[in-house]
Amino acid sequence: MTLDRRHFLRGAAVSVALVLVSPSALRAAQGTEWEDWRDGILDGREATEGGIDLDLPNIAENGAQVPLGVRIDNPMTEDDHVRAIHVIATRNPAPDIGSFHLTPHLARAEAFTRIRLAEEQEILVLAELSDGRVLAQAARITVSVGGCAT
């Protein structure tokens, strides 16, 4: 079962790689609400692009319920673990989608949830590691019916 799951995840990672774009969401521009939110998380640190597998559909039929899987290859030990994964929307009414906080009690740096997207946009994910590094990954997603009516 674990094997099947791993195969599935590998396949999912490959399919999602096609929608990854050069992260304009990481450019140093400032001034919009989401850029300020991003810069608040970075707190002066430089983010390294890559190292995060995002499992997101290319096209979300329903923006109110968009499945999001995040996975980082990390041993999740006391000395080397992922502390937090922040998910940022670049074209929602508010940039904060949510933040996962992880601990070495977890077997993997992997989690799944569902998010809300108002329209087609780039999603930016920042991962804070225990050694102080920050990883970043962006993905573009098309939204058929926007999900921010509430």
Binding site: A64, N92, D96, H101, H105, A107, A111, T113, I115, R116
Partner: peptide, 27 residues
């Protein structure tokens, strides 16, 4: 929490969907 220790936490922003669901893996 596991035996009183936090193992996983999520802070909800406005972009979190209704009927929140999570999957995660504990050792």
């Amino acid at each position: 929490r596991l035996n009183g220790d936090t193992v996983f936490r999520y802070d909800f922003g406005n972009g979190s969907a209704a009927n929140p669901t999570f999957t995660f893996y504990v050792r």
